[in-house]
Design a binder for these strands. Structure first.
Lengths: 135, 135
DNA sequence: TGAAATTTGTACGTATGTATA
DNA sequence: ATATACATACGTACAAATTTC
């Protein structure tokens, strides 16, 4: 349950793993709030920066959302729309640029899928809201 | 060139944007090293934690790699292998779990593409090394 | 309306550890 | 062995957003 400072694994990674496991186990429901970060730090006996690092990592994984003044929320899976992709197209995935994140309203930790045909970009899709299907 | 503490935009975001732009402009070649983080902090007049936050963000975007004891390296685009995807399959993208990152050797800031048919997972591909093509 | 409490964000500094050159 | 460079981790202070009273 607790963390081991002598395990060789950094505390912030241990903490991220612990929280990830508790979230996966359903300890907090999707859309629900984790305890305040100060409480988490107290419970696990680590400082603020360590909690911050763990939270940053889980955000980058798309596991949580953090709302300032509110708390740390378990991300809810979004509805996924089916998008057909023609034969011969190519599908790549990558992290969005900040501009794309702003324009498309993409949360942190969510990649984009890019569909191209003949080198021309046909679509850029937030990966949490689409499933691509070859037609 | 420099940062504005009064712009309302956090310094670490401004710094990340500045470095992103300089990288995109080719100021440092792919595979090359940025200046040491201490130098970056000195040049931009910000503290160590601020540089760290900017570096963490650029890592999560897949723009840079950080090698301990070496420096901050501009990531080189990997060779992309073409993978055919059958009709009727579904393609999703997401950030990998830490286990997947370890098993597949996926760098930070790189999503995975997941191909399923009939709900069964047919493949999990590091997105920096594949392009999927509907066949 | 507004004040207070809660909670996260930003940013600094300091010290120590560890990998590489 | 020494120097360089990033990583970890602590603490502190203040700012900003939200909720509650």
């Amino acid at each position: 349950m607790s963390l081991d400072p002598h395990s060789g694994v950094p505390l912030h990674r241990q903490l991220a793993a612990a929280l990830r496991a508790r979230i996966a186990a359903g300890e907090w429901p999707a859309g629900g709030l984790l305890p305040p970060s100060a409480r988490i730090g107290y419970d696990y006996g680590v400082g603020k920066a360590t909690v911050q690092a763990a939270v940053t990592a889980l955000r980058a994984e798309g596991v949580i959302d953090v709302e300032r003044g509110v708390g740390i929320r378990v991300r809810e899976p979004a509805e996924r729309e089916l998008v057909s992709v023609p034969r011969g197209a190519e599908i790549e995935a990558r992290m969005p640029t900040p501009e794309e994140r702003a324009e498309l309203g993409i949360p942190e930790g969510v990649p984009v899928q890019v569909v191209t045909t003949g080198g021309r970009v046909r679509g850029v899709y937030p990966a949490d809201r689409v499933k691509l299907r070859p037609r």
